[in-house]
């Protein structure tokens, strides 16, 4: 599904990520961890073609990222569900409109599955609320719903539990685990080791750790 071969990324002249070679198989569950500023978000951006490697190659769904034009990047992102820490909602739209935004930009209609999705993330009663009216946990779950509305093959989550309490983070984690059990590939960037331990107790996961600009496969006992 995703393959990196000797991929590196540098901001201006400063190397941030170096010589990364790993793959993400369909249906797998990955964690990406490392200290703040290690380059987790940058690596995620390489995986949905917001950034291009400065050397090496990133192949996304069989296509080299370097060879994609802007329309191909847009089509790629419809196959990837993104969950950001800041959620990135449009505040003038209701939560249901925000969640359906990927359908709107793809020219697709809202189906009956939408109500099920809202209920699944526990937001059935908040559909008409505006983003500023929601709690941190509700916003994260809404962001997850928006990421899933297009039934993506891959979900990339950047610190999805960064702004919520422990109970809510467990709830979001449970949703992501259920999603993976349904066949969706999941990659979560987080520095929350408790979250990783919770997941590892329930599904087979791979943990990638960024250290000194390199990606390593981490040991089980984090």
């Amino acid at each position: 599904m995703i393959q990196l071969e000797a991929a590196s990324y540098r901001y201006d002249d400063t190397p941030l990520l170096s010589d990364m070679s790993f793959g993400i198989a369909p249906g797998s569950f990955h964690f990406l961890t490392g200290p703040s500023g290690a380059g987790k978000s940058t690596l995620l951006k390489l995986l949905y073609a917001e950034l291009l490697p400065t050397s090496g190659q990133v192949t996304l769904f069989g296509q080299p990222a370097h060879g994609m034009d802007r329309d191909q990047v847009a089509l790629l992102r419809r196959r990837v569900g993104l969950v950001h820490q800041d959620c990135a909602f449009l505040d003038h739209l209701t939560i249901s409109q925000n969640i359906c935004l990927p359908l709107t930009v793809s020219g697709k209609s809202v189906t009956d599955d939408f109500a099920e999705l809202l209920a699944w993330v526990g937001l059935g009663h908040r559909a008409d609320a505006f983003p500023p009216e929601l709690s941190g946990g509700e916003r994260q779950r809404a962001a997850l719903a928006r990421a899933l509305i297009m039934a993506p093959e891959l979900v990339l989550a950047d610190e999805p539990t960064g702004n919520v309490d422990w109970e809510m983070s467990q709830r979001i984690m449970t949703l992501l685990l259920e999603l993976n059990k349904m066949g969706t590939t999941v990659l979560i960037a987080t520095h929350d080791l408790n979250l990783i331990r919770t997941a590892k107790s329930q599904v087979s996961t791979r943990v990638l750790r960024i250290k000194d600009g390199h990606v390593q496969l981490a040991e089980v006992d984090l």
Partner: peptide
């Protein structure tokens, strides 16, 4: 800009 960034991230083409 923020709206456009969000739209690009969720798969909107430039033409849209």
């Amino acid at each position: 800009f923020k709206t456009i960034s969000v739209l690009r991230r969720i798969g909107a083409k430039d033409a849209f």
